[in-house]
Design a protein around this nucleic acid. Sequence first.
DNA 1: AAGTGGTCTAGACCACTCG
DNA 2: GAGTGGTCTAGACCACTTG
Lengths: 262, 262
Amino acid sequence: MNIKMASLPQLTHGSFIPLYRQIQQRLLGQIQSGALKPGEPIPSAQEIAATLGVSQMTVRQAIKSLCELGVVYSRQGKGTFVSGIKLEKDFRQVLSFTEDMKARGSTPRSRVLSFDAQQPSAEVIEALHLRAGEKIIRLKRIRQANSVPMGIECSSLPLRVCPDLLDTFDPRNSLYEVLAERYGINLVVADEVAEAGLADAEAARLLRIAEGSPVFFFKRISYVQNGQPIEHVQSTYRGDRYKIVNRLTRPNVGLLGSPQSM
Amino acid sequence: MNIKMASLPQLTHGSFIPLYRQIQQRLLGQIQSGALKPGEPIPSAQEIAATLGVSQMTVRQAIKSLCELGVVYSRQGKGTFVSGIKLEKDFRQVLSFTEDMKARGSTPRSRVLSFDAQQPSAEVIEALHLRAGEKIIRLKRIRQANSVPMGIECSSLPLRVCPDLLDTFDPRNSLYEVLAERYGINLVVADEVAEAGLADAEAARLLRIAEGSPVFFFKRISYVQNGQPIEHVQSTYRGDRYKIVNRLTRPNVGLLGSPQSM
DNA sequence: AAGTGGTCTAGACCACTCG
DNA sequence: GAGTGGTCTAGACCACTTG
């Protein structure tokens, strides 16, 4: 048995953390600490199960989750190996500006341009599936990182889902935090479209860049887990200060072909 | 038992397609066909297992994979429900330009500007982890969709991994296809950075746009499953013709905190 | 032949939700 | 209390790789 495996503390049965998560964390720790290096095999499922006194299925569950993260990969008949692919944190995710900037190591701040209830535009009605006459809350902010203006963001939310937001929300705080804590709204998926464009006069003034400078135009619709759209965001970000960092992955095979009912 | 479930054909035990994939496809088919609508619960794991004559674990494996796709979500004690989040295909993935354009419904074509072995730049050496003196193959192409120039792409690959590519590759074909079929190289992950910028004189001429038009600058490094970098791409795409479409998801919880070895 | 990962079973207990 | 999803067990057989 691998010494690295055996020398770690015991698993705690019946704790609030499932066994497979403990095993997952244990392996992840060994990989991130360098005890298991890229290209090396990790102990086999059999071996781990025997050492830790758990079922093989439980171990496989842990290993499978690490495969999905990309930190290891399995080869039938050979073993499971540590991948050299890094587990970066700065890829684009459903993050509020606040979270995003903190993850990138900057201090976020916002200046509120406007915050009020409005009639939605046709685009927002469509995006948020609003009923006729339904109002929205609109929050327009300048986003700053370390006191440098980065972008202009205009968020729209259905008034219905956060009726007293106008009274209770301090717009300097993180909108996503308040949605989660006060209304139990957790945004888990967002669809985003980015375009490259040029700053118009207003954007140039607010972002303190020259008119005609390169900028990103974003449109984003964020959804809660049941697929209901909650937020529409339209924003303009400085091209000289902002980059889009993405990790792209291969589509999952086996799901594309034959969507008929077998 | 749900009629929709029972009325479908039997599963085939011992076929080359695992049972859990058959169940997964079966459910996906029912969702995509509208037999199961957003917001509705799918049959419980117990129920499906009993009807199909398989173990609950197998059913759960199928359901879990659908959760990861985002097409359903589970609530402990309540059930598993169809999400309204669409399973779109046009999100950014590790796709060759050829695949990407076909997925978007356009006809891809490429014009080769140059295709030769070269000494790599410092940036490419770093990106591809090249040894001192190691050469690369460089392929510079104009990418067209329906005969309209979309972008300029410059791919670099280590000569070592595809030594006879220069002789055998017809540069009008898909590079990714040839890498997979001839060399068994499958790119599964790519890290990409996009910036917003302005077209310089050369880019403007090649893309037939005005100098100073908005463009995307991309840099991409693609990896095979063991984490080895295989391809470095630097490209410039027209801002008026190209959009970045992303689906963003919430970070998986439970993996961020406490990366120590428990 | 031995070891590996991939799939599958037939149970079990728990935590949670709802009536 | 009944039904649900979440986790776990102790086996099993298969496909695959390597010596």
